[in-house]
Amino acid sequence: MAKDRKDTTKDKSEEDGGKRARGASAAAALRTKVAQVIWLVCVLCALALALGALLIALKANTTNSLVQFVLDAADTVDLGVFSMDDGIKQFENKKGKPEEIKNALVNYGLGAVAWLVVGRILDRIIRP
């Protein structure tokens, strides 16, 4: 009879350990998925900025709806810090007019790099 009690206690502790292991595994899987989603969002923001800079450098037709969509997306994810109009670095020509292509390449390029760095840091912090 005493032997049966020990077996029951042992089975119960093994069962609790299995539940904890499954819970930890599920939490690790969730953290991995969240980290992947955050990394994907950051990469898409960086891609929008890079494409926006490229379209401005190529002097793409801004009346085209796809070009306008990409430029609007880039303007949205620049967070005002990497804006073409009032960004980190502003270039002007000899007449005092802004150099649109240089401003786009530098500011949107820095913004894309910043999104990638922040995304990778968050990915490393969140991922188990």
Rank of each mutant, 00 (worst) to 15 (best):
S13R: 15
E92T: 14
N93T: 08
A53W: 03
I125D: 00
D72P: 01
D123A: 09
G87C: 07
L49D: 01
E92F: 13
F91W: 09
M1C: 09
D123M: 11
Q90G: 05
I125M: 07
C42K: 02
G96M: 04
A29M: 08
T63L: 10
Q36N: 14
F91Y: 14
E100Q: 13
L40W: 12
V70E: 01
R31T: 07
V34I: 15
A21L: 10
G80K: 09
K33V: 13
G17M: 11
F91N: 02
D86V: 05
E92L: 10
G109Y: 06
L122T: 07
K10Y: 12
A74D: 05
L30S: 12
S83M: 03
C45G: 03
V34S: 08
Q68H: 10
R20L: 15
L44R: 08
A104K: 00
V113L: 15
G109A: 05
N61E: 08
T76A: 12
A46C: 02
L47N: 01
I121H: 04
L40C: 09
A60R: 04
K94T: 13
L55E: 06
A27H: 06
V70I: 15
L110S: 03
A46K: 01
N64E: 02
A29G: 06
T62M: 06
D123F: 14
K19G: 07
W115Q: 05
K97L: 09
K94D: 15
D86Q: 10
K10S: 13
L54H: 09
W115R: 03
G111W: 00
D78T: 00
G111V: 02
I56P: 06
A48Q: 03
G111H: 06
A48T: 07
D7T: 10
L116M: 13
D78A: 00
R127F: 04
R5K: 13
N93H: 08
I38H: 06
